[in-house]
Design a protein around this nucleic acid. Sequence first.
DNA 1: AACGATTGTGCAAACGATTGCATTACACAA
DNA 2: TTGTGTAATGCAATCGTTTGCACAATCGTT
Lengths: 330, 330
Amino acid sequence: MVTIKDVAKRAGVSTSTVSRALSGNIPVSEETKKKVMKAVKELNYQPNVLAKGLKLGRSKTLGLLIPNVRDLVFPAAIRGIEDTANKYGYTVVLCNTDEDIEREKIYINSLRRRLIDGFIISTARPGHKHLLELNNEGFPMVFLIRRIKGNFDAVTADNFQGAYDATKYLLSRGLKNIALVNGSLDILLYRERFKGYKKALEEANIPLNNDIVIHNVYGWEDGYKAMATLLEQKLKVDAVFATSDPKAIGVIRAIKDYGLSVPDDISVMGFDDLDVVGLLDPPLTTVSQPFYNMGVAACEMLIRIIEAKRRPKPMIKTLPCKLNIRSSVR
Amino acid sequence: MVTIKDVAKRAGVSTSTVSRALSGNIPVSEETKKKVMKAVKELNYQPNVLAKGLKLGRSKTLGLLIPNVRDLVFPAAIRGIEDTANKYGYTVVLCNTDEDIEREKIYINSLRRRLIDGFIISTARPGHKHLLELNNEGFPMVFLIRRIKGNFDAVTADNFQGAYDATKYLLSRGLKNIALVNGSLDILLYRERFKGYKKALEEANIPLNNDIVIHNVYGWEDGYKAMATLLEQKLKVDAVFATSDPKAIGVIRAIKDYGLSVPDDISVMGFDDLDVVGLLDPPLTTVSQPFYNMGVAACEMLIRIIEAKRRPKPMIKTLPCKLNIRSSVR
DNA sequence: AACGATTGTGCAAACGATTGCATTACACAA
DNA sequence: TTGTGTAATGCAATCGTTTGCACAATCGTT
């Protein structure tokens, strides 16, 4: 490997001068700068990131904590993060926590030994004390997609508005008995979506019917069960708003299995707009979250925090969702 | 941060002793070892990976080169890699190349500045000269999923056997006119799958009908077009073997759009068994690739290469595929 | 003409680990 | 007693950077 010493020798200057010429922080005469650049080119010098990191105490590395890459919500966001990190010369390390706090702690620890510069966290749940501690230390971190209440940096979708728009749209299609198949209210974003749903009903003067709202639904299997329950009870339902696409997939399968048709008998609205849902039968009408852009925004925010001299005030960036109308709503 | 010096001071020994006690490579008396361990515990000492990496010239970091995380083939493999790397104390850096050689070269370069220990490569295509160079240097690398001809370390599925079994199965269901919707023959794995298909037909004494084999199909849109062409030509087809699930998805949509039914009119067989294809309508019968285990195997192979004193002989590990029978074949 | 500012450069000390070599202490044999 | 061997430890150099400090040269001011 060619080091800064080789460059210095070739350019006939000291290593300090090379370092300064390269960083540009400290003035170096035009002439020597030219000599240095020439030597750098000729030798194809590439600074050793580890050495630099050791000296500076930072590694130009970012940690990304997610529950599981296989969850289809994440790949697009990861891509946004990765592209952005790369643009600014950072490298990103992916960590799958499986929603396991111990695993998460171990990851955080082992990355800190590598002098990681900051974290993007998509695993937030209430009661993650270790994250609060990290934040109190002033360690750079931003929440992505999921966040927790409080004064933290975060990038999320506008979950309230997305749910509100979706419900409004269902209402505008003449659908009145809109069931809600929702996730756990422990998670902030499901609370927000619930609020959006309620607000839209309220504005339409439709009372909330608790018989047809189901919470704590996770994944398509649960979605299937929730819908099956609804159908068994013979409740009047002409549309279902499932607050994530996997739930919607389960809901659709249940409706089909009960011999009914989507959207002729029951309309279904999803939330997320995962890459695959346009390929379903019928193609799913759903609220589109800008995952890629959320990844970009989170990464830029984190890098800004890392590179600032003083920690900027925490801010929550909320990106708008938009309806992606396909064919699962009549 | 607590350093090895702090530990040394607390234990009343030199840093060298601490280092030796910790690594275990060089004998240290039981008594001092105990003292050192005690100090380590009390101070919660975590060695600085960058410093160690700088000194040793290795970083305990692995690079993973894939075309795109959003391609559903990869998440499961990534997960396998990640879990394994983690188990051995390695960290993995994800790189999306978008099949762009320049991007790939830049990534490889920038990771080498970080003293990366090795690469897992899923982007192989013929004519990737820079990969050959890397290999000639003796740099640790293993191909995953895709590989190129030659004497390289690699982990792949048994593409020949998978395609052979799939075709056999279609034949066993009484399907005779089996169209093939295949990828580019530039890519080794599609050549293998083509061979498996031909072998099965041959054994059943069915001559290869080139009118119903289509190559160079990429993604679901192309799959749709390929199937549409077949249907337009009114060729006799009672089954389609699509050599990747996205192609199969396109094929199914085309069949439906032409007013026919899967599997009643035409059966469809896929290849990959992506996480979502069980949720399609009809659930896809497909050849299941053990992506997770392939990731695990590739990562273990790479780590073995990295940690060996002498580079072991290149080996190609081929994992079996198995048929996942659902409902798209009658 | 003398003096302080300013600018450009080099020396050498860090960053936190590992390791070859030297040193010490001790046991044992001659 | 002396010498040799062995085991345990410490010293100091090293990995490739950055940067505080010192110094030299140049310039403008009084």
